[in-house]
Design a protein around this nucleic acid. Structure first.
Length: 756
DNA sequence: CACCGTGGCGCC
DNA sequence: AAAGGGCGCCACGGTG
């Protein structure tokens, strides 16, 4: 089946989707857009960018005079006053929301796929808004494809079998049986917090209201007081929705339980909206999760119309769709019910974690309830940290950024004419080497290929590493490579980037995700995770502050040593440079050992690492067996489970041998990269907690690197904190002291300084 | 005109 | 014999 064909798209979506771009046959989006329920922010951001260049699209014009872009969408349903004290009145009740667009995952509501975006905004191409190009995840698709709906995925085994069998009655069941329970019942100190439409509520596990529904202005001081007096564990559906307004108000919340993020641990994947989580906990078919109907089309037959207006769940036991979407939460009573439901979900999750069947994880050791709970807590903390990262932003030296961009992309153009003149000037430096071909469009790979062929450089593609081999053949090659770098900065990280993402307060902001659907890393938008090294001098502490820059050394092999429980590899981790003892053990040079270890974790079997890999197998059989088991599981299509207990599902479907091998490589890497991400988040959460009294704020997380922004006076304390936090987090997370983790920590003004 | 797929590339 | 993992972003050309 050709990749990119409609049936391929269909298959990818139904199957849970290939994670790797290569496995997708090079397609960028087949997986993400349709299988991972990408937050609309991606699509909205793309549209906004286009709009910035080309003006508003027709759909925008039709919506006008609707809410301004970035404004929170008002409920489309007529605001009906419920019992209690309704706060929604026609024409009033302006919600409190952050002024800038791009609310981030959870910030704009539950994660929804493109199809839902179509339903809400743009009609489908054939005027069929409900289906949206025929690949809507609402359920019809999966059934029609003759493939089991996501409900039958593994993962439900963590709930009692009866929950699934009894269907609609399952919702009434108590928490799952607590086999092997090692964690005391209940979430100590739990308080439910829900925020919607500028109002918030706090409820206790008993259901009692602790802070009655009130405006944010009234809520914030009460939260501060509770935080100070009780240090509660705040329980919410999703930090992006419930915690954001509180974080924006400047409140520091120490501990939390993020139902969405814990769901990602339990079930895997990215979809974690309340409706999906609820269905999962109740053993209900996720395909049956109610969707919000398009009001103007289906208002008369909307299931919501047949519901008791004050009941949170449908007859099937699902959460009502308009509650998940937010438009139902219009009264104090409903808001409190929403917060209580979060507490209920959290308690069920905790029980599911504690009572998890002791099936072997991909490394062969038993899943440990304590470890699972720790993962749930640090992933929750990461979700809150993500909100803080979005709200606080990364400090930028605007003058430095301006200078760097000018150097790479030329001066800020005053108008389109000047912009195109600058582009032409940049192009000329390349085209001057190919007389007679000055009309070549350097942004068109086909034309570039032809141009290169005309001067005797024949290449299959024009990628950087391909061209690099032809550097000596013709001067145009070098010029082209230089052009590419400049063009990169000019387009992606140029003036447009600076204006769109760096705020008046000189902070770079972008959306953060605590756990991607693949291996479990954090993700960030707007260049926060892929800022070119040449621009990093622009990331600088604000006056009176410094950046404490900490990065973990060789985290992935050390994590492998820990999770595989390989004694020999653990011994090697005692060295500050892990590759040195490995090289000695293998009898090869250090660079060879390094490549071999990395190749083992990434699944590479060819090239120069090949021979060293065999020796690696002999020297560290336990660690290598761990990787082999993950690979085999991936090839079979079985989900793998990371050390922290996070399930990583594999995409299904009829796959070629090569595609199954790719899935195996993905799985092999996922247990290492994913586990490293867990340790990283545990570390970050510890630093966050310890840094608060110092006024130290984490401003960037980059897979194995932390940037902490702190007043100069507290720099050294923060350095000590970062080291101490790593020791604590690693010991807690690995459950051993046998594996050593090291961090390189330095105090700098600019991110670019002091790279070890 | 908007959408989709793809080439290419930044970072870890 | 043998395709190294993950992410986000911008560009273009083709299509309906």
């Amino acid at each position: 089946m050709p990749t990119g064909s409609p049936s391929c798209l269909w298959r990818c979506w139904c199957a849970g989707g290939p994670r790797s771009r290569k496995e997708r046959g090079g397609a960028h989006w087949v997986g993400e857009r349709h299988t991972r329920h990408l937050p609309v922010r991606h699509l909205r951001a793309a549209r906004d960018r286009q709009r910035a260049r080309r003006g508003p699209c027709r759909a925008d014009a039709e919506r006008a005079p609707g809410p301004a872009p970035g404004a929170r969408r008002r409920p489309a349903l007529p605001a009906r006053a419920g019992p209690g004290r309704p706060w929604v009145r026609a024409g009033r009740g302006v919600p409190v929301s952050r002024p800038r667009p791009g609310p981030g995952r959870g910030g704009g509501g539950p994660a929804v796929c493109r199809c839902a975006a179509l339903r809400r905004g743009h009609p489908g191409p054939r005027g069929d808004p409900a289906r949206g190009r025929g690949r809507c995840p609402a359920g019809a698709g999966a059934a029609a494809a003759g493939r089991p709906a996501p409900a039958s995925r593994p993962g439900r085994h963590r709930l009692p079998a009866a929950a699934g069998r009894h269907g609609r009655h399952a919702g009434a069941r108590a928490a799952p049986a607590r086999r092997g329970l090692t964690v005391p019942g209940g979430l100590p100190g739990a308080l439910g917090l829900a925020v919607a439409e500028g109002r918030g509520v706090v409820v206790a596990p008993s259901g009692a209201v602790v802070v009655a529904p009130c405006t944010l202005g009234e809520l914030v001081p009460r939260l501060r007081q509770l935080e100070q007096e009780q240090r509660p564990r705040w329980v919410w559906w999703q930090a992006g929705r419930d915690a954001r307004p509180v974080v924006e108000a400047g409140v520091h919340l120490a501990r939390c339980w993020d139902v969405a993020e814990v769901h990602r641990v339990l079930a895997g994947g990215l979809a974690a909206d309340p409706g999906t989580v609820w269905a999962h906990l109740r053993g209900l078919d996720p395909a049956g999760v109610p969707q919000v109907a398009e009001p103007d089309l289906f208002a008369l037959v909307s299931p919501a119309a047949q519901l008791d207006p004050e009941t949170l769940t449908t007859a099937d036991g699902h959460l009502r769709a308009d509650a998940v979407q937010g438009s139902w939460i219009t009264t104090p009573a409903r808001l409190a019910a929403w917060a209580r439901a979060a507490l209920t979900a959290a308690e069920q999750q905790r029980a599911a974690l504690a009572g998890a069947p002791r099936v072997p994880d991909s490394g062969g050791s038993p899943r440990d309830a304590r470890r699972l709970l720790a993962t749930a807590l640090s992933e929750s903390a990461a979700a809150l940290l993500c909100v803080e990262l979005e709200v606080h932003g990364l400090p930028i030296d605007r003058a430095a950024a301006t200078a760097l961009i000018t150097a790479a992309a030329g001066p800020r153009p005053r108008d389109e004419a000047q912009a195109s003149a600058i582009r032409a000037e940049r192009d000329r430096a390349v085209l001057v080497h190919v007389p007679g071909r000055e009309r070549t469009d350097l942004r068109n790979p086909l034309q570039v290929k032809e141009m290169l062929a005309s001067v005797g450089v024949n290449v299959d593609n024009t990628r950087k590493w391909t061209l690099a081999a032809h550097r000596g053949s013709h001067p145009v090659v070098e010029a082209l490579l230089t052009w590419r770098k400049a063009e990169r900065v000019a387009t992606t990280y140029g003036w447009h980037w600076l204006e769109s993402h760096v705020g008046e307060d000189d902070r770079l902001r972008g959306a953060w995700t605590a756990c991607d659907g693949g291996a479990g890393r954090m993700t960030a938008a707007n260049g926060l995770h892929n800022l070119p090294a040449e621009l990093r001098p622009a990331v600088a502490a604000h006056p009176g502050h410094v950046l404490v820059r900490a990065d973990l050394g060789q985290i992935e092999p050390r994590v492998l040593a820990a999770v595989a429980r390989d004694p020999a590899f653990a011994d090697a981790s005692q060295a500050a440079d892990l590759y040195s003892p490995v090289a000695a053990e293998l009898g090869v040079d250090r660079p060879v050992a390094k490549v071999a270890v990395l190749a083992a974790m990434y699944g590479q079997t060819s090239g120069s690492a090949g021979k060293a890999l065999k020796r690696l197998d002999r020297a560290y059989p336990t660690a290598m067996a761990y990787l082999h088991r993950a690979y085999d599981a991936g090839v079979r299509g079985d989900a793998v489970v990371t050390w922290g207990g996070r399930r990583v599902p594999m995409w299904q479907g009829p796959l070629s041998e090569a595609q199954r091998a790719a899935r195996g490589r993905f799985a092999r890497n996922a247990v290492v990269q994913g586990a490293a991400a867990e340790l990283f988040k545990a570390w970050a959460a510890t630093v966050r907690a310890g840094g608060h009294p110092l006024g130290a704020r984490i401003v960037l997380c980059l897979h194995d690197e932390l940037l902490v922004h702190v007043r100069e006076a507290h720099a050294e304390e923060t350095v000590a904190l970062v080291h101490r936090s790593l020791d604590e987090a690693a010991a807690r997370w690995t459950g051993t002291h046998r594996v050593r983790f090291v961090a390189d920590v330095s105090v700098v003004r600019r991110w670019s300084e002091a790279k070890a």
